[in-house]
Every structure is written in C-alpha cells, then in structure tokens.
C-alpha cells in the first residue's frame, strides 16, 4: 500500500471511530436514563467497534508517517481518545462492572477527537529534529497514558460530586421511623482514622452507583495515573537534558505538567487529611483536571515555548 493509501485509511478509520463513539455515547446516556440493559449491551459493542477503528486509525497513521504516531497534537488527541475508551471498557466496565460511566467517558473521547479533526489536523510527515528521539516514544506514551487515566478518574469524580450531593440531600430528607434507620447501610459514607477510603454507603439508589463506589473508582484511577504521570515528567526531564542541555527550565509545558503533578499530589494528600476528604479532595481533583487540559491544549496552542512545535 502506498503512503497515501495508509493516510486515507487512517482518516477513514478515524471517522468510523468518531461516529461509533457518538452512537455509543448516545446509547450509554439512553441506558443511564431508561435502564434498558439491551441498549447498554449495544452501546458497549459499538464502543468496542469504534475502539477497533481507532486502533486501525492510529496504526495506519504511524505507517503513513513512518514513525510512532504521536508526534503532533492531532495524533496525540487520537491516541488519548483511544486510551480513555479502552480504559473505560477494560477497567470501569470490565473490572469494576460499572456501566453508567460510559456516556461520560465516550463524551470526553468524542470531544477530544472532534477538536482534533476540526482544529488540529495535519497530514502525516516526519518529525522536526528536536522531536526525533526514542524519548518521544517513552515520554509521550507515559504522558498520554497518565492523561487518559487522569481524565477517566476525573470523569468519575464529577459523577461522585453529583451523586454525593444527592445522597446528602436524601439523607436529610429521611426521617428515621421510631428512632430506627430505614436502611442500615444507607448511611452516608464516613472515614475512619488513618483510612484512605470511606466505609459504608455502598447501597445504590438512583441512576448512579453509590457515591462511595464512585469515589473509590476515582481514587484508584488517579492513584494509578499518578506514578505514570510522575514517570512522564521525569522522562521529559531526561529528554530535555538530552535535547536542550537542561533537565528543567520552567518552559510553559514543564511548568504546567509540574502544576498538574503538584495538584494531584495535593489530591492524594488531601485524602489522608481530616477535613479534606470527600468533596474537598474531589474538588482538588477537578482543579487537577483543568490543569491537565491547560497543560495539553492551552500550552500548545496559546503559550509560546519550547513545546510549541509539538503543536498543530
């Protein structure tokens, strides 16, 4: 196959993936609203098909460009969407058996890919010398993996905040009958000394899983992402040492990846600090997510720095 054919295949597969993700997202949201398991099953299959197309798109792009397919923002976005969807299908649906997050995870993937195809598209081509390094493979893969997991964790955190609010409102409404509690385990989750996860409150009421379950998934996803992000920053520093002769120079990208790292470190500490657990920690995670988006979009597109060439 010619380079043009590979390039076309990549674009076509990208479109198939995007449409499949949109369809799956609608299906997931329909399931969330009406609880039709069959719709969830279809959405899941469509999302998996979209994921396969996404993989084809990324691989074909790599073949067309003759290098690893994460050399610019369009490619990075495509891979980010791929990992978020894969993470959702494998971790959230596969391991945690939680079905209702699909719509939000897919919405993130759809947004990322739509922005990529509308504003960031460039044809496949070779890399500028500064990017031409095996550290590109290591640093960028870690960064993208960390970002996708952070993104997933933060989607769940948003749902946690929504659900937690509802549970609190519900708890205020429940009037214990004759001093007894209606449901033993329906008490809002609470922390015990020294613990990093709440106990209780796992009974599910309403559309979303219990806040405690959402909180646990969010925490574990972010705790999984944090070392990967740490590694990405370290690998970036080693690469910078090789490429620019200094491992840290407060370039905007470095600064913002550091800010993201610090905020998520704050999140992990907040979960072990009394008075900060629960909603406050969740808000810190949201700040971290915003910082992640700034690290990726704002720094590449609007702030001039050494990473600018990695842009559009």
């Amino acid at each position: 196959m010619s380079i043009d054919a590979w390039s076309r295949l990549s674009t076509d597969a990208f479109n198939v993936a995007l449409y499949a993700y949109v369809a799956a997202m609608l299906g997931y949201f329909y399931f969330l609203a009406f609880r039709r398991t069959v719709v969830w099953r279809i959405a899941s299959v469509v999302a998996s098909a979209g994921l396969a197309a996404n993989v084809v798109s990324v691989v074909a792009r790599g073949v067309a460009a003759g290098r690893v397919p994460w050399g610019n923002m369009y490619e990075y976005s495509t891979l980010l969407a791929l990992l978020v969807v894969a993470g959702h299908l494998i971790v959230v649906e596969g391991i945690y058996k939680v079905r209702v997050i699909g719509g939000f995870a897919l919405a993130f993937a759809v947004l990322t890919m739509a922005v990529a195809v509308m504003f960031l598209y460039v044809g496949p081509g070779p890399l500028v010398p500064a990017l031409n390094s095996y550290w590109l493979k290591i640093h960028v893969v870690a960064a993208i993996l960390g970002s996708s997991l952070f993104a997933l964790g933060c989607i769940v955190t948003i749902l946690y905040l929504v659900k937690d609010r509802r549970e609190q409102l519900a708890a205020e409404r429940i009037v214990p009958i004759m001093g007894g509690s209606l449901e033993l385990d329906a008490a809002p989750p609470h922390f015990e000394a020294g613990a990093d996860e709440p106990v209780g409150g796992t009974v599910r009421r309403g559309l979303l899983p219990a806040a405690a379950v959402l909180d646990r998934i969010a925490y574990r996803t972010i705790a999984f992402a944090f070392p990967i992000w740490t590694f990405a920053v370290i690998a970036g520093a080693i690469w910078a040492e090789n490429a620019w002769g200094r491992y840290w120079g407060w370039d905007p990208k470095e600064t913002w990846s550091f800010i993201t790292w610090v905020v998520f470190a704050g999140y992990l500490h907040a979960r072990a600090t009394s008075g900060w657990r629960g909603r406050r920690a969740a808000v810190i995670a949201m700040v971290g997510f915003v910082s992640l988006l700034v690290t990726y979009y704002v720094v590449n597109l609007w702030i001039t720095g050494l990473h600018s060439y990695a842009g559009v």
Partner: peptide
C-alpha cells in the same frame, strides 16, 4: 499534613503565575 497540603497548592498557584 494540612500545612503541607496548603503549601503544595500555593506552590502550584505560584507556578501558574510563572507561566
């Protein structure tokens, strides 16, 4: 831990100003 946490967040805000 609370002091450390606040300092971490202040450090992040300082870095934001720097960017």
């Amino acid at each position: 831990m609370r002091t450390a946490l606040v300092l971490l967040l202040v450090l992040a805000m300082g870095a934001v100003a720097g960017s």
